[in-house]
Design a protein around this nucleic acid. Structure first.
Length: 274
DNA sequence: TGTCATGTTACGTA
DNA sequence: TTACGTAACATGAC
């Protein structure tokens, strides 16, 4: 699930379901999900009695703002939240359960247990989020073309791993990087400092466009055996290269290729991208 | 049985 | 300092 559009979709859904709910109990079934300096016991003690006032997002991080604490949560590969009656039996791979005052529970499920969550005093949340070292959000107001171009000029790294690095611009993952590079007609193995100003402008434009479209469609549901909660994503129907190895390119009809760049599956059209 | 998989970080090495 | 490869995390699908 989790690149920026999916995390944003989760945020909106959760906010609708659990805004102003008070946590009356917390159970942690896999300790490593909770990151130091908190352990499961301290995590639970801190959260009982807290009310969830709002939920924010920065890059791929969810930020739950409560009375005294903020919870920062990263879904990594397969983390999911769901809200259900507290009496429902626990599904497999349920690692954290927040029991709410209204008889429901917020549950965190994660097949691979890669996701992480931690608490920060509410007064420290700004510093903590700034300390994550994330680049700008991929929206017009935050993501400045000139800064982006200057940053790329200093890197001889390939563009694909550079875009996956959250410091350059926040929120892109493997799927959206492939889609953005396809729309911008740039090969994923091009060196950053070799891109022309025009190419960087296209890249900048399509990063904003793809993320915006994907958010509008509720993200992409890829390889998901079940929808975590609420609406599934529909953007996977709009993916042009990711998951389309061997299919004809929507622009030229040549087969889409798949290779490996920076250890990640990478989809591209050898004819349209250069 | 082996390979692959949406993310991030730590570590060793060049 | 920068960059890159690899492993680690842990499980399931094919």
């Amino acid at each position: 699930m989790p690149e920026l559009p999916e995390v944003e979709t989760v945020r909106r859904g959760l906010l609708e379901m659990i805004k102003d709910q008070t946590i009356i109990d917390v159970d942690v079934y896999w300790d490593r999900i909770i990151t130091p300096p908190f352990d499961s016991e301290k995590f639970k003690q801190s959260l009982v009695g807290e009310t969830i006032h709002t939920i924010l997002r920065r890059g791929k991080y969810l930020i739950f703002l409560m009375d005294h604490w903020a919870m920062i949560s990263h879904l990594r590969m397969e983390g999911k939240y769901k809200v259900c009656p507290a009496s429902d039996p626990l599904e497999k791979h349920t690692h954290v359960v927040f029991t709410l005052a209204d008889g429901r529970s917020l549950r965190y499920l994660d097949v691979r247990k890669f996701g992480r969550m931690t608490l920060v005093p509410i007064t420290m949340i700004k510093d903590k989020v700034n300390g994550l070292g994330l680049g700008p959000e991929p929206i017009l107001q935050c993501f400045k073309l000139e800064d982006f171009y200057q940053q790329l000029q200093t890197k001889k790294q390939m563009i694909k791993p550079a875009l996956l690095n959250q410091k350059l611009v926040a929120g892109l993952g493997n799927i959206y990087v492939d889609e953005v590079l396809f729309r911008a007609k740039i090969m994923p193995n091009r060196a950053c400092n070799d891109l022309t100003k025009e190419e960087v402008e296209r890249l900048h434009h399509y990063i904003i466009e793809v993320i915006e479209e994907a958010v509008a469609q509720g993200g992409s549901t890829i390889r998901s055996y079940q929808n975590s909660f609420g609406a599934p994503g529909y953007f996977q129907q709009s993916l042009r290269v990711y998951g389309h190895e061997g299919d004809p390119c929507v622009d030229c009809g040549q087969p889409i290729k798949k290779t490996k760049i920076a250890q990640r599956g990478t989809h591209y059209c050898p004819h349209c991208q250069s």
